[in-house]
Simulated assay, not measured.
Amino acid sequence: MASALILIDIQMGFEAPVWGARNNPGAETNAGRLLAEWRKWAAPICHIRHVSSEFGSPLVSEGTIFKPEVAPLDHEPIFEKSVNSAFIGTELEDHLTQSSVGDLVICGLTTPHCVSTTTRMAANLGFNVRLAHDACAAFASNAATDWAPTLTAPDPQVIHDTAISHLHGEFCTALATDTILTEGP
Rank of each mutant, 00 (worst) to 15 (best):
V101E: 05
A122F: 01
T110S: 10
C107D: 01
T117P: 09
A135G: 03
N128Q: 11
V105I: 13
M121K: 12
D134Q: 00
V129M: 02
V101Y: 06
A132I: 05
L131T: 00
D103A: 13
M121F: 07
R120C: 08
A137K: 11
A123N: 08
C114P: 10
T117N: 08
R120D: 10
R130K: 06
R120W: 05
T110R: 09
H133C: 14
A137Y: 08
L125C: 05
A123G: 06
D134E: 07
R130M: 13
A123D: 05
R130C: 08
S100K: 15
V115G: 01
F127L: 06
R120F: 06
D103E: 14
A132E: 00
C107Q: 03
N128K: 14
T117H: 11
G126W: 04
R120A: 11
L109E: 03
M121Q: 10
N128F: 13
L125G: 05
T110V: 14
A123K: 07
G126C: 04
G102M: 15
N124I: 13
R120G: 10
L125N: 04
T118N: 04
A137E: 10
S99I: 12
G126A: 06
A137C: 15
F127C: 03
A135L: 07
L104V: 15
T118Q: 01
L109W: 11
A135T: 00
P112L: 11
P112W: 07
L125S: 03
T111S: 12
M121R: 13
A137G: 13
T110C: 11
T119P: 09
N124F: 12
L109K: 04
A135V: 01
T118M: 01
V101W: 08
T111P: 09
T118C: 08
F127N: 00
L125Q: 03
V129L: 05
D103L: 15
C107G: 06
N128S: 14
G108A: 04
D103N: 15
V101L: 14
D103C: 15
H113I: 13
C114W: 01
T118F: 04
I106H: 00
L125K: 05
V105M: 07
T118G: 00
H133D: 09
N124Y: 07
S99W: 15
G126H: 05
P112A: 11
V115M: 07
G102R: 14
H113D: 09
H113V: 11
S116H: 14
S116Q: 08
H133R: 12
P112I: 08
L109F: 13
A135S: 05
A132N: 00
S116C: 09
N124P: 12
A123I: 04
T117I: 13
A123M: 07
A137N: 14
F127P: 02
I106K: 04
